[in-house]
Amino acid sequence: MTQPIADEVVRKVAELARLALPEDELRALTADLARILERVARLGTVDVEGVPPFSHGALLESVWREDDPRPGLPREAALALAPEARDGYYRVPVVVRRDGEEKP
């Protein structure tokens, strides 16, 4: 568990987590994660042979209810919090471009 964390791995992680970061931030993040993971490697010293991973079931039982419709947050109240909304929908920047269309 003691592999150091490579720049490319942190870059990939930032991409997966949708975090746009400048180069210096990425380098600082790599250094921080390396130190944290070095400490976390102590988990390797615990004998967990035959111990299952913890799951929520250890604390709780699943509960059920009737699937009855209930009133929720009114649409206008939800949309009022959005950075941009139009015609009863959330508005976002371009999702799909036509073939050959330039990225901004």
Partner: peptide
């Protein structure tokens, strides 16, 4: 990482 941590938690 994640599953080992959850075993230690258990």
């Amino acid at each position: 990482y994640y599953l080992r941590a959850q075993r230690v938690r258990q």
